[in-house]
């Protein structure tokens, strides 16, 4: 039982990382949102699996929140936004896919190298989970750094948050209230960001953040 539980947890976490990589090179916004939704589904599966093996029923609530908010509400809202903004058919220029992927691989290796030695004494499930969760966080950050479109930056942020939830549920004893408040803060952040997106669009006719820089008179 132990080895099975470990294998399933490991597989789901690995799946999350894989989906992060998918997002990293995906240059169509629609597909990007699909990948985010898929990641949220895998995340909720992973959290549910943690609920079973840790015998912590409150984690099911977290899993439900992940499915409800991240796999359904947020992707739907994002899709509406891009349709309204008229960028749902746009193809974003993602500079240097190969290089970005290589950087991503390096980040995964780095997070494994960092986490595995320092968590030597702890439960192997949470060790692997935390290592992979750190990779998801770093990949989300990498995505935010490499993208220019405000919507894909938001998606990077959401994916980053998925990694945080994975780490939080992997560690035993994280209180439910923390997870719920994280979920709601993400929702609020999403609302704020959505409003801002429309404001930016209204003013600059684009959601390319470079337009903002030009407006501020920065040298390019």
């Amino acid at each position: 039982m132990h080895s099975l539980s470990f294998d399933v947890a490991h597989m789901l976490a690995g799946f999350l990382v894989l989906l992060s990589f998918m997002m990293l090179y995906q240059d169509r916004l629609g597909a990007l949102i699909n990948a985010l939704a898929a990641q949220a589904v895998v995340l909720s599966l992973s959290v549910a699996w943690q609920a079973i093996i840790q015998e912590a029923p409150h984690l099911f609530i977290t899993a439900g929140l992940a499915i409800g908010f991240k796999a359904v509400v947020i992707p739907m809202a994002l899709r509406r936004i891009i349709v309204k903004l008229g960028i749902d058919r746009e193809i974003e220029t993602v500079g240097g896919t190969g290089l970005t992927m290589l950087a991503g691989i390096g980040l995964v290796a780095l997070s494994l190298q960092v986490v595995l030695p320092v968590t030597g004494g702890s439960d192997p499930v949470s060790r692997e989970d935390i290592a992979l969760a750190l990779s998801v966080v770093l990949l989300g950050l990498l995505m935010m750094v490499t993208r220019r479109n405000a919507v894909s930056q938001v998606i990077g942020f959401m994916s980053l948050e998925n990694g945080i939830v994975l780490a939080a549920t992997g560690a035993r004893g994280m209180p439910l209230v923390v997870e719920i408040s994280v979920a709601f803060s993400i929702l609020i952040a999403f609302i704020v960001v959505g409003i801002f997106l429309f404001r930016i669009r209204e003013r600059f006719d684009t959601v390319d953040v470079q337009a903002l820089d030009r407006f501020r008179g920065e040298r390019r």
Binding site: L107, L110, S111, Q113, V114, P117, V118, L138, L141, L142, M144, V145, R148, Q153, V209, L212, D213, E218
Partner: peptide, 24 residues
Amino acid sequence: TIRRYLGIVFLLLVALLLMVGVGG
């Protein structure tokens, strides 16, 4: 720009992790 700030934070984070990972 926001992206550069994010980039700085990101590079700093990676550098710190590298220090921990390689040094530790």
